[in-house]
Design a protein around this nucleic acid. Structure first.
Length: 285
DNA sequence: AAGGACCGCAACCGCCCAGAG
DNA sequence: TCTCTGGGCGGTTGCGGTCCT
């Protein structure tokens, strides 16, 4: 027995959304939110659409703060690097590009980037053209969130993993300019929720040394980093197969992402300014 | 100018997972 | 513990626009 359809397909409109539908959905969501139920939403809002369709329309098109088109070379590089490392985990990649949707990135990859990566073409965009500003921005990508959003069954300390909301876009970016106060539905969450979630992140505790190198913001207190993050790092290493890593005297992990250009500035953006000694067995040190 | 090929993107489909009961 | 339901995600499709011959 197959599962019941999420909506009555015969009485549901499909295809492109018209401006009126957009307006109705937007107005309803801004007024009432999702109510925690996308399936019931179209009926309440008076739309003849499938709930999933509404959700997609909102997340990919109507949600405030959406950036459309205009991918920069730096965006390309981030996408390229992350895709090369974790594959087509579009939502994870999108979480590192504020304002971008997974669908947008997926489309961009399928139509543009994939082609540039075909044999004979150059791989990652040249990093020498990257501005210092951009490099800094990449450097400040929230690696905690990034790692945490890669589910690896054995990755997390079972006692702590539950408190880490891997699906929440509300997890802060360390770059203030990147902070987007929308929840996973793209709706402005209750402020207490932000605090709550921030506390949850803080609760992702670990005991590793060197965590003081993480920049801290009010919503990103990583002071309690423990071996959980290190475990995540260790177990995620398999996912990063093909990446050569080495630990230099400065304690910063330098990785070779397999890109054509080996710009340390960029690579260190994904580097871990944390004591990586526990990685030694994996790094051949 | 016409029409076929190609491209980009919005939207759908269906599977998987987590949570509730 | 099992079943059901909704949310989330990646893959795929279809259509409209643009390019090329």
């Amino acid at each position: 027995m197959g599962r019941a359809p999420c909506c009555d397909k015969d009485n549901v409109k499909k295809g492109p959304w018209c401006p009126e539908e957009d307006a109705t959905l937007k107005e309803y969501l801004e007024k009432h939110g999702t109510g925690g139920n996308w399936i019931a939403l179209p009926r309440k809002a008076g739309l003849k659409r499938c709930g999933k369709s509404c959700r997609l329309r909102w997340l990919n098109y109507l949600r405030p703060g959406i950036k459309r088109g205009g991918f920069t070379e730096e965006d390309d590089k981030i996408i390229c690097t992350l895709h090369g490392s974790i594959g087509s985990r579009w939502s994870v990649i999108a979480s590192q590009l504020p304002g971008r949707t997974d669908n947008d990135i997926k489309n961009y990859w399928n139509t543009k980037l994939k082609k540039t990566l075909l044999p004979g073409n150059s791989s990652c965009p040249k990093s020498e053209n990257m501005s210092n500003e951009t490099t800094n921005e990449i450097r400040h990508l929230n690696l905690q969130q990034f790692w945490a959003s890669i589910p690896t069954a054995e990755t997390y300390d079972s006692g702590n993993s539950a408190c880490f909301d891997t699906n929440s876009n509300a997890l802060p970016y360390s770059s203030e300019s990147n902070v987007q106060n929308y929840d996973s539905n793209g709706l402005v969450p209750d402020p207490s929720l932000i605090i709550s979630r921030s506390m949850q992140v803080s609760g992702f505790h670990t005991s590793g040394s060197g965590s003081e190198n993480y920049s801290k913001t009010s919503s990103q207190d990583l002071s309690g980093l423990s071996t959980s993050s290190t475990l995540a790092l260790e177990n995620s290493y398999g996912l990063w197969s093909g990446i050569n890593g080495s630990v230099k005297e400065d304690g910063i992990m330098h990785m070779d992402f397999g890109c054509e250009s080996h710009d340390d500035e960029f690579l260190n953006g994904f580097g871990f300014q944390e004591d990586t000694r526990e990685l030694a067995p994996y790094l051949g040190n």
